[in-house]
C-alpha cells in the first residue's frame, strides 16, 4: 500500500521546472512559499503541542541527537535555520555561552514570534538574534557561522539545492551543516505502518487539537515528497559539502544529514 502518487522532485528538475510540489499538489514555484507560510501561520500557536503529540515526544530526542552531533562549543557562532519555536536555539544558546552567538532564522514571522517569546520567557536573551530570512537567500556575509542546523525545515523550501548552496556560502571553512528531516523508513513493514499513521491518524489529530486537519495532511504529503537519504546526500555534495554522511533515526522515519565545508 502506498499513499504516494508522485515521486519526489529531484535536485535537477527542481531548478528547471516552473511548478513544484506542495504536498502531492503541483503548484507554481512562486506560490509555494506563501502556501507554506499559510500552513505555519495556522499551526504556529499549537506547533510544540502537536509535535509532542504526533511524535510521542520523540522529536525532542531527534533534536537532542542533532545537538550531540553538532560539536557546539563556547564561542561558536551558530545559525538555526527554520528554527521555528527555538528548540535547538535554546540549548545552543547555553552551549556557546556569552562569547558565542546563535541566530534563529525562520521565513515565517508567526513561528519566529512564538519562538522569540518562548526563549525570552525562559530567560534566554543575551546571545540570540532573530532574523526573518529565506533559506534560499540567506542575508549573512560569506563564512559567518561555525555550525548551521536546519531541523524539519528543508522539505518546505521551494528550491532545496539553492538553500544548501546558500548555507554553504555562509558557513566558515571547517564548519558543518546538520539537516534533520523526515526521510524514508528502512523497512517495508515500518513504511506501511508509518503511512497508515501519517495519512489516517495525523490529519485527524491535527483537526482535533489544532483545528486544522489540512495542514497536517500537507505535512504527511510533504514528507513523502522530500528527497530520500541518498538523494539528499547527493545534493549536499553538489553544494560543495565534504565528508557527507547521514544517520537514520527511528528506522529512517527521520534522518540526520551532516556535511562539512573545508
Amino acid at each position: 500500500m502506498s499513499d504516494n502518487p508522485n515521486t519526489p522532485s529531484t535536485s535537477e528538475n527542481q531548478n528547471t521546472a516552473v511548478t513544484t510540489d506542495f504536498g502531492y499538489k503541483q503548484v507554481d514555484k512562486s506560490q509555494k512559499a506563501s502556501m507554506v507560510a499559510n500552513v505555519f501561520d495556522s499551526v504556529a500557536a499549537k506547533y510544540d503541542v502537536m509535535n509532542d503529540l504526533m511524535s510521542l515526544g520523540i522529536h525532542r530526542l531527534w533534536k537532542r541527537y542533532t545537538i550531540d552531533c553538532s560539536g557546539a562549543r563556547a564561542g561558536h557562532k551558530i545559525l538555526d535555520i527554520a528554527g521555528g519555536t527555538g528548540d535547538l536555539t535554546a540549548k545552543f544558546s547555553r552551549l556557546v555561552g556569552p562569547t558565542g552567538n546563535v541566530t534563529l532564522a525562520d521565513i515565517n514571522l508567526s513561528m519566529l514570534t512564538v519562538g522569540r517569546d518562548k526563549l525570552r520567557d525562559r530567560g534566554l536573551i543575551s546571545n540570540i538574534d532573530y532574523v526573518q530570512a529565506d533559506a534560499e537567500a540567506l542575508p549573512f556575509p560569506d563564512n559567518s557561522f561555525d555550525i548551521v542546523t536546519m531541523a524539519f525545515g528543508l522539505r518546505n523550501v521551494t528550491e532545496k539545492q539553492n538553500a544548501l548552496n546558500s548555507i554553504y556560502r555562509v558557513l566558515k571553512p571547517g564548519g558543518r551543516l546538520l539537516v534533520l528531516e523526515f526521510s524514508k523508513p528502512t523497512t517495508e513493514q515500518l513504511s506501511k505502518l508509518y503511512d497508515m499513521y501519517s495519512f489516517h491518524v495525523l490529519p485527524k489529530m491535527g483537526q482535533l487539537v489544532a483545528n486544522d486537519g489540512e495542514s497536517y495532511q500537507y505535512l504527511a504529503e510533504s514528507i513523502r515528497m522530500h528527497p530520500d537519504q541518498e538523494t539528499l546526500k547527493g545534493m549536499f555534495e553538489k553544494a560543495g559539502f565534504e565528508q557527507c554522511d547521514y544517520k537514520n533515526l527511528t528506522g529512517g522515519i527521520v534522518a540526520l544529514h551532516r556535511g562539512y565545508k573545508f
Binding site: 525532542r60 530526542l61 537532542r64 541527537y65 550531540d68 533515526l249
Partner: peptide, 10 residues
C-alpha cells in the same frame, strides 16, 4: 530512537 539521546536527557 537514539538511545544515547534518551540517556543524556534522563
Amino acid at each position: 530512537m537514539p538511545a544515547s539521546a534518551l540517556f543524556s536527557a534522563t
